[in-house]
Every structure is written in structure tokens, then in C-alpha cells.
Design a binder for these strands. Structure first.
Lengths: 333, 333
DNA sequence: ATGAAAGCGCTAACAG
DNA sequence: CTGTTAGCGCTTTCAT
């Protein structure tokens, strides 16, 4: 590939001059500017961003760590994030941590070595907590770590909404399936909100945690299966993601449990499909677009050194989307 | 951040020596090696990969261009790809082209400027075809461009399988919804295979194309809606992605069309949810894992300069997964 | 076994 | 308005 030097020689000027027209800095006569432009054209010159990054100490790269981009929620989130980032000239380095401590650490090291300007973490395990003392802008999603800014949706409120909805729909025997509560994610507050709220109604839900491998469908199915077998009396179920809700549907279909007549179901996230399938999934909608925009804005501010006055917690509202996996008003018993 | 120079000073050696222990090259006494190691520890030194890339002319970065990572198929694909890449020390730069010509070009320029070692294109528009004369390793997914290696699944066969299945299930009035055929993607062969095959049965399907904005749910819904309104006789429908199949389900639910009794439906991709929902979606499964591994292997070979003997087309088999949106054997009329 | 020096491609004073 | 020079952090001959 042509370098700035090649362009300079072809145009009969020095590299400084070429650099000037490249960056629109300082005075250049139209004549030389045109000569340089022409040389660039002819050589199909493309400035080497690696060299620029080295010089400027600014890579315009952001590290994005998610548990897995294959999960629809993180896919949408990453999409929005990348859209905002690229609109501002930032590129995204994609990392799938699989919620694995060692991998997370390796990715963080990798991102530091590659001198990304900032890191957006949608994933962190227990161990990574004390590990993040990189004097580098970070923002987390749904994970509070010390003095690191965090954007999340109102998980507690999401749990409350689900609880109130099931209670209002007449459920008496309620269960809840959530991710591993040991992972210390704000998502756990969904469970807290749900349980706290139900207790106000004098109800005590059965709570089941999924294993450490948070994205193993087979394990999920097994957990759902034994819950419904051991507790056939359950008539209301709140799960912590739409994906799990679908697995509940599968198990129910196999067991002949009708939704919502015998079991009312509420998911979390509101991924696009939830609106399309039959019965439509009642779920708690997270404001993905706002969350990703906010996360980007924060990291950009941090990079620009304007992070001082930013609050650490950014909690965005959620809302319950009522569809057909919970009973319709007319059918209320 | 500490530089190699800081380490050298702290250890009382020159940068050359530090570089040596960093790269395990040449002779170093154990004594100095340890001194250097210690200094690195104390300074929390992390080699600057940007400087290394500049020097080595090798960034260990791969550009990944997809229409949108928010689509479950590309999400899964990108996940697998990143898994293979990171296992071999490569990083992934994520680009969402939105199937927009201008954006694609910009991304390609960006990737060239950033000196990625190779590009994996899961997206290309008409215009980008002649644009790709970057003397850089590329592999495409589902898109044949001149002398560029391409991995795809057997799209034509996918169409054939769908046609045979619908015909065997007794459908007489068949329709097909596909992406924009102008986009010259191998995915179009699904339509060809489908139509060719049906004609052998003396059937002529109605073919409806989606608009240019391939991922606009509202538009999809509208297209599906008018197809089913204008052709109430349709009893078999093959759509080119599971996501569209779900929208068909929504429209059918609204119109009171029962699946599979009145309308049999086949999707494409076999995203995870398709197995869980009720009725389970009959669909054509693409071997995502193999396709991503192959794509990575090819790009790696290309980067290593061993691409000469590689064939240009890599077509992997698909298979039909029969579920409940097509009639069960026992119910055959 | 270690060091000195040049250079990767680019930017940024400082001259003139 | 343009050129000279130094340097970003690292690797790599070539000496010693």
C-alpha cells in the first residue's frame, strides 16, 4: 500500500505537506493541495490509521465485551452501540466472554494492549471486579463495579411489574427462574423486586437459579422441566429472559400445559420475536436503544475527559408489555 | 502506560533486550531475563500492540461486515467466527452495513485504513462488487464476487427441499417470500431451487420480494399481510428466513389462519427459538458452526499466503428440519 | 549475551 | 506557504 512518503515524492513535496492536506491543518496553496490530492488519487492512498493511532495516542477503537453476541438481546444492543459509535468515528472490537472469568481477563488485557480508547462491558464475572484498575474509560451495562459508570434498566422495577401483573391476574402459586445470582449482576434485582413485591401480596415464590453456564439451552430446558414436574401447582411464572420463556413454552407444549390458561408466563427483554409469535409473550421491555446510546455517550465523554460530573448510575425505565401469555382482562377469573 | 523504554530503564538494560525477552528471541542470560520480567511486573507493562502492528505490518485484526448483528442468524455466525478467531489470536472489528452501499464502502475503506489482515464479508450490495480491489485477503459469505473465495450453504438445495416438502404435504397453491433478488446474493438460489422444483410438480408459486431495506419488520408485515389477503387460496408458504416466518405467524394469528391446517409454513436458518416455540417451525437448517469455521480457516490461509490452492466455492449441505408448521404424517389429507 | 541505530508511517513543533 | 527534525513504541540488523 502507498505511504505518505510515496505520495510526497509523486507530488514533489515533503511528507509534512501531505500530512497537512490530509488533516487540513496550516496554510497550503491551492496549487500544491491539488498536486497532493492528485497523487493520492493515483496511488489510491489510504492513510495508515495504525501509524496515526501510535502518534496521537488515540485509536478511535472501543472494546465491547458481551457474554455472547448470539443472544438476541446483546445482538440488538451491540448493533445500536456500533451504530452510535461509527457515527462518531469509533470502531468496535468485539469480545464474547462466555461469562468465563479467564476469558474476560484475557479480553481486557487484549483491549489494553491494543490501546482501545474505552471499554464497554456488558459482561463481568465475580473475579474481574478487582482486576479492572486500568486507567482507562469504562462503562458497564447492568453491572455495578466501584467507581465505574453503569447504565442499566430498572431491574428491580421490572421484577415488581412482573409480580404485580401475575398477582393481578390471579396467580396463587408463583415461580421464578433467573440467572445465577452469584454473578452479582444488576439483573439479580429483578428477582429481588419480584420476591419483595409478591410478599406484599402474601405470596412466596419458588425461585430457581440457572447454572453458571448461562447460555446452555439444554441445561435451561432441564431446569424448566424439573420445576414444572415437581411443582405442577404453579400457575404463574416469571423468567429473566425471553429466551428462557421460549424454552418454558417448549416444555409446556410437551407436558400439555396450556399457556395462559394453566400457566401464565412473563419474560424479560422484549426481543422482536416476542411480538410475533402466538401466543404473544408478555414481557418486560428494556429500552435497548436508549441504553446503548447512553452507554456510548458516557464512554465518549469519559474519553474526552468530561467524565467528572457524570453520575455513576444511569437507570432507565422498563415497562411491561402485556400480550397473550398472561390472561386477557375478559378472561379474568 | 509503561513503555518498553520504562521497563528497560528500570531493569538497567536497553530496549533491545526487553524486546528480546518479550519475543523470546536470541540469547539472554537468565539473570537479565528475570530482571526484565520483574521490571515488567512492577510497571504492569503491557506491550503496545499498535506499535507492534506498525512494525510487523500485521495487525492480527479481521474486519467482519454483516448486514446487522441484531439478526439472530448473523449473531450466531459472528459468535462462532469470533470464537475461532480469538483462539488463533485474531481480533474482530465489527461492522453493520445495513445493506447500505455507501456504508459498506465506508466500512471497507475504514478496514483498509486500519490495516486489518483480512475481511470477512457477510454483506455486500450491488455496487460494492467492483469496489473490492484491495490486495487484501477476503472471504465472503453467501456472495460470489469474482475471484474471491466464498463459503455458503447449499441455497439451491434448500429451496428444493422446501418445495418437495410442501408438495409432499399436499399443498397446491404455494407462495414464497424472499429478500430483494436484485441484491445478487447466493440466497437468491433458494428461490430458484424452490421454483424449479415446484415446476416439476406442475406447480407455479407466487413469488414476493421484500424491499431493499431487508430488515424492516413493518415492511415485512405489510408484505405478508397483502400476500395473504390477495391470495387467500395459498396453502403453502416458504419464506427465506425464520424471522420472516414469525411475522407470517403473527399475521396469520390476526387473520385467523391456522398453521399448519390452513397454511403450511417453512422458514430458513433454524435459529434456536424455532425449536422452542409452538408450533415448532419447520425450517431449513444452515450449518452455522461449520460455515464460520470454514470462513475463518480460509481467511487465515489467505493471510498466511497459502490461498493459491483453495477452491473458490465452498458449499455446505443444508437439511430440512421437520416440525409442526407443516403437517404431520398422520394428518396427511 | 547485550547494545546502538535505523526505521515502520505518521504528526508536530520550529524554522524560514 | 513549505521544509527540517524529532519522536510515538516497538523490532531488527549489525556490531561488540
Amino acid at each position: 500500500m502507498a505511504t505518505i512518503k510515496d505520495v510526497a515524492e509523486k507530488a514533489g513535496v515533503t511528507v509534512t505537506t501531505v500530512s497537512r492536506v490530509l488533516n487540513n491543518r496550516g496554510y497550503i496553496s491551492d496549487a500544491t493541495r491539488n498536486k497532493v490530492r492528485l497523487a493520492m488519487e493515483e496511488l489510491q492512498y489510504q492513510p495508515n490509521e495504525i501509524a496515526r493511532s501510535l502518534m496521537r495516542k488515540r485509536s478511535m477503537m472501543l472494546g465491547l465485551i458481551v457474554p455472547t453476541i448470539a443472544h438476541p438481546f446483546f445482538g440488538q444492543w451491540a448493533y445500536s452501540l456500533e451504530t452510535h459509535a461509527s457515527a462518531r468515528g469509533y470502531k468496535i472490537l468485539l469480545c464474547n466472554s462466555r461469562l468465563d472469568e479467564a476469558k474476560e481477563k484475557d479480553y481486557i488485557d487484549m483491549l489494553k494492549s491494543n490501546r482501545v480508547d474505552g471499554i464497554i462491558m456488558g459482561s463481568h464475572t465475580i473475579d474481574v471486579r478487582e482486576y479492572i484498575h486500568l486507567g482507562k474509560p469504562i462503562v458497564t451495562f447492568d453491572r455495578r463495579i466501584e467507581a465505574i459508570p453503569c447504565v442499566s434498566s430498572d431491574n428491580y422495577q421490572g421484577g415488581v411489574l412482573a409480580a404485580e401483573h401475575l398477582a393481578a391476574k390471579g396467580c396463587r402459586s408463583i415461580a421464578h427462574i433467573c440467572g445465577n445470582l452469584k454473578l452479582d449482576m444488576l439483573g439479580n434485582r429483578r428477582t429481588e423486586g419480584f420476591v419483595d413485591s409478591l410478599r406484599k401480596y402474601g405470596l412466596e415464590p419458588i425461585v430457581v437459579q440457572l447454572g453458571a453456564d448461562a447460555f446452555d439451552p439444554a441445561e435451561h430446558e432441564q431446569v424448566v422441566g424439573s420445576l414444572l414436574s415437581e411443582h405442577p401447582e404453579v400457575d404463574g411464572l416469571f423468567v429473566s429472559s425471553d429466551m428462557i420463556a421460549y424454552q418454558v413454552m417448549k416444555v409446556c407444549a410437551a407436558k400439555g400445559i396450556r399457556i395462559p390458561e394453566q400457566l401464565q408466563l412473563i419474560g424479560y427483554d422484549d426481543i422482536p420475536i416476542s411480538e410475533w409469535i402466538t401466543p404473544g409473550l408478555t414481557t418486560i421491555k428494556q429500552p435497548i436503544e436508549e441504553m446503548s446510546r447512553l452507554a456510548f455517550n458516557i464512554i465518549e465523554k469519559l474519553i474526552e475527559g468530561e467524565g467528572a460530573e457524570l453520575p455513576l448510575e444511569h437507570v432507565l425505565p422498563v415497562r411491561l408489555i402485556e400480550r397473550q401469555t398472561t390472561r386477557q382482562p375478559g378472561l379474568l377469573g
